[in-house]
């Protein structure tokens, strides 16, 4: 027996959580919007994808679109829903914003449960369209899925990097650090934040949610509880809130560390003790991290320090060159 399919599955899940953490980092790390509704956004994207790909004659009928069109559709739908949610919630600050986004995520989950005709209710949606599944053995598909997840992660990373290096990203961080000052400089803070919320919705629906759906193989409302939100947040905190790659690294470390426990072989009688070791391990990981690296494995300062270095050097070594560059 090989452990490779198992690790492919674990890494795929790690990348899904990592992508969500990278997007959450744009919102919470750079934008200061501590969002507890990420599970709701993923749910909207996941159900949109599933319903757009589901055949019209299925138990839960859909439009029967190809997977790529459904990804685009799910991205747009999640973006619109996120903007609609963001419009009232982003008027709130701090814990009020946090509680409201949490409430919206629960409302979305309850709507999924209630709207049985549309979403399958607690039955969920099965028969998910997985890209290229027909060309591979079921035992090989975990590797294909890992490849797809890696490709999606690269795209999310590119967007995240682009945001971090852009004026828009700097504006987002400026509004987080000193909102009155940012406003006095003419920055439309509310518009920037709603745009960020919508961007995160777009990327969640376009990439995170479809890969999560492929990973799950079926949708049930229980997949979108607060457990998912806290998993994403834990990954981001471990990796480093505000850093460029921290969310991804933290989520992968968290997932791999949690699942590696499964490979310890014990008698069935001791399985419960081994299983209890997993939350213990996660707890210890967080405590150790908060004690010795309170900013996470990577920090925001470290992430943005590199860009400052060349300019610092120029300033230090040759003031005239700096003047020339500035000119």
């Amino acid at each position: 027996m090989s452990t490779l399919p198992f690790w492919a599955t674990v890494l795929t899940f790690g990348l899904v959580i990592g992508m969500a953490a990278l997007l959450l980092n744009i919102e919470a790390g750079w934008g200061g919007m501590w969002d507890l509704g990420i599970a709701g956004q993923v749910a909207v994207g996941a159900y949109s994808y599933a319903l757009l790909t589901s055949p019209p004659d299925a138990v839960v009928p859909g439009l029967g679109l190809p997977f790529w069109a459904a990804m685009v559709g799910a991205g747009l739908i999640t973006m619109i829903v996120s903007a609609l949610i963001g419009w009232p919630t982003l008027r709130l600050r701090g814990e009020y914003f946090l509680i409201t986004t949490f409430a919206f995520a629960e409302i979305i989950r309850q709507l999924i449960v209630i709207q049985r005709g549309l979403t399958g209710g607690t039955f969920g949606v099965t028969g998910i369209d997985k890209p290229f599944a027909e060309y591979f053995l079921p035992s090989a598909y975990p590797f294909i899925l890992l490849g797809l997840a890696a490709a999606a992660t690269v795209l999310v990373l590119l967007v995240s990097q682009r945001v971090s290096n852009s004026t828009y990203g700097l504006t987002l961080r400026a509004a987080r650090d000193n909102e009155p000052l940012a406003r006095s400089m003419g920055t439309a803070v509310d518009r920037v934040r709603i745009a960020t919320y919508a961007l995160v919705g777009l990327m969640t629906g376009l990439l995170v949610a479809p890969v999560y759906v492929w990973f799950l193989g079926a949708l049930v409302p229980a997949s979108f509880t607060t457990h998912l939100t806290f998993l994403v947040w834990t990954g981001l905190v471990i990796g480093g809130l505000g850093s460029r790659l921290g969310g991804l690294i933290g989520a992968v470390v968290l997932t791999v560390a949690s699942e590696a426990v499964r490979l310890i072989s014990v008698d069935p009688e001791h399985a419960s003790r081994l299983a209890a070791f997993q939350p213990f391990l996660v707890g210890v990981l967080l405590i150790v991290l908060l004690r010795w690296r309170p900013e996470g494995l990577l920090s925001e300062r470290g992430a943005f320090r590199k860009r400052a270095k060349p300019l610092d050097r120029i300033r230090r070594d040759d003031p005239q060159t700096l003047e020339a560059v500035s000119a």
């Binding site: 027996m1 090989s2 490779l4 039955f123 099965t126 079926a218 490979l263």
Partner: peptide, 30 residues
């Protein structure tokens, strides 16, 4: 899903028992 993959690919389980409702629905197709 992770536990199922471990049982099938690492342990080589030839039958599967004890799943709960949500797991059954999620793993039905697989």
């Amino acid at each position: 899903i992770a536990g199922y993959q471990k049982l099938v690919s690492v342990d080589g389980a030839q039958v599967l028992g004890s799943l709960e409702s949500d797991g059954i629905v999620a793993l039905y197709d697989t």
